[in-house]
Every structure is written in C-alpha cells, then in structure tokens.
Amino acid sequence: MLNGISINYYLLLSTVLFIIGAVGVMARRNSIIIFMCIELMLNAVNLMLVSFSTLHNDPKGQVFVFFIMAVAASEVAVGLAILTMIYRNIKHIDTDLLTNLKN
C-alpha cells in the first residue's frame, strides 16, 4: 500500500497509459504524433518505476527514472532534427509517404 493506494492501481494506470501510447503509434500517420505517443509510453514506464521505488522504499528506481528522462531528452532532440530534415526534403511528415527504401 502506498499512502492507502494499492500498487495494483498504479500498475493498471501505467498499463493503460502504455496501451494508449501503443494504439496512438499504430493509429496515426503524422510522425510527430507518433513521437509524442512514444513519449507517453516512456512516461507510463517511468510512473511504474517510481511506484515500485516507493513500494520498496529504494531510491534506485527514482535514479533510473532520472536517467530515462535524460535519454528521452536527447532522443527528442535528435528525433525532431531528423523530422525537420525529412520535412525539408519531401515537404511532409506523413509516414506513408516515406517509401524511399521500397524500390
């Protein structure tokens, strides 16, 4: 119990957030929205790590979340640079138009 809330509810919440992110990745064609859904999935995992860290009273889980945030920040910087590059080349960021490797 974490302040009177069972760990199961936190697990359920982060699972639902993760699935929403996964559905967003599958259902959208805009690259930026897909990227944002990946951020949502990362945050769901972060929430689960923090809840387990509080459950075990162990700060290592929160340090891991800190590192995940650093990795996510660098990922966003590089990813958005790649997206602007794609936009500059094909004037769109629709994932279905990226067919250069097809033929």
């Binding site: 936190y10 809840s51 860290s53 800190f66 945030m69 958005l80």
Partner: peptide, 23 residues
C-alpha cells in the same frame, strides 16, 4: 502522491517545459 517530490519538479521542468516546447 508517491513522495517523489524531486522527480515531480524535474518532470515538469524537463517534459512540460523543455520537450513539449520543442515539439
């Protein structure tokens, strides 16, 4: 709520402040 005050502040600063503005 999970007693992770430092992470809450860092989360707001990094995600809502930096990453989302970049988006």
């Amino acid at each position: 709520l999970l007693n992770a005050q430092f992470l809450a502040v860092v989360h707001i600063v990094v995600y809502s402040g930096a990453i989302m503005v970049l988006f």
